Amino acid sequence: MTSRRYTLVRCMGLLVLIPGCATTPGDVRLHADGMPMSEKCPEKALEVMRYLRLYVGESAWVQLDANQSRAEHITLHEGPIESVLDQDIGTLEAPLRLYGRVWTGGEQPVIRYYAAQFLSGGDRVPICAVARLGFGQLRKRPESKPGTAILDSPRAGVYIVDEFR
Rank of each mutant, 00 (worst) to 15 (best):
Q137Y: 06
E39H: 08
R124N: 04
R124L: 02
A71G: 04
C128A: 06
E163A: 10
C41M: 07
L14S: 04
F135Q: 14
Y55F: 13
S120F: 12
Y6R: 15
G105D: 10
T7R: 10
A131I: 10
E58L: 15
G100I: 04
R132E: 13
L64G: 12
A22I: 07
A66N: 14
A66G: 08
L138H: 11
V158M: 10
D65M: 11
A71Y: 10
T91L: 11
G147V: 05
L138A: 08
R141P: 00
Y99F: 11
E39C: 02
A156G: 14
F135A: 15
P109K: 06
V28G: 00
G79Y: 07
G57N: 07
Y159K: 03
T24R: 13
A116P: 00
K44Q: 10
G13K: 01
D86F: 04
K40W: 09
R155S: 10
T75K: 14
Y6I: 03
E107C: 05
T104E: 05
L98S: 08
E43H: 03
C128S: 08
W103F: 02
L98I: 08
R53D: 07
T104I: 10
R50A: 11
G34R: 08
T104F: 01
D86R: 13
R97G: 12
F118T: 10
G106A: 09
V130L: 12
Q68I: 10
W103K: 00
S153I: 03
G90I: 06
L54W: 11
P42T: 10
T148Y: 01
S38F: 09
R124H: 06
R70P: 00
L85M: 15
L64W: 00
P25M: 01
A94Q: 05
T24N: 13
